[in-house]
Design a protein around this nucleic acid. Structure first.
Length: 104
DNA sequence: TACATGACTATCC
DNA sequence: GGGATAGCCATGT
């Protein structure tokens, strides 16, 4: 289904430019909620994977986290690397430099 | 550093 | 239609 919550999350994901990443907490804060798990749940079960760059969302501690699609986390890491976000063993390199903040 | 608790939703009984 | 469970996590102890 496509609830307003999910649509809001996906819409926020589309605002992330290529080569940048953001965190679930950032999205939750952008949606004015504290349910970061709900965000992950909504993004993880998104029915329109290619339209939503869910691989540009990582954990707030700089780690990749999980990924549902393709080969899983390796696919997420590879996509990020292709877009210019360097990773090392499931962790973002220069996380502060590629971190994208949502503007109100 | 590792474990337990917390907020909110979608999905499965 | 209603209640219970789990989820691409965060944060505090």
């Amino acid at each position: 289904m496509a609830t307003v919550f999910q649509q809001s999350v996906w819409k926020a994901l589309e605002k992330i430019p290529q080569g940048k990443v953001t965190s679930y907490a950032e999205i939750a804060r952008y949606l004015n909620t504290a349910a970061v798990r709900a965000v992950g749940s909504a993004v993880g079960k998104n029915p329109n994977a290619p339209e939503v760059p869910c691989h540009r969302v990582v954990r707030s501690d700089g780690r990749i986290g999980q990924y549902s699609g393709g080969e899983g986390v390796p696919t997420k890491v590879r996509l990020l690397t292709e877009e210019g976000v360097q990773t090392l063993e499931g962790k973002i390199i220069d996380f502060e430099k590629v971190y994208w903040e949502f503007k109100p």
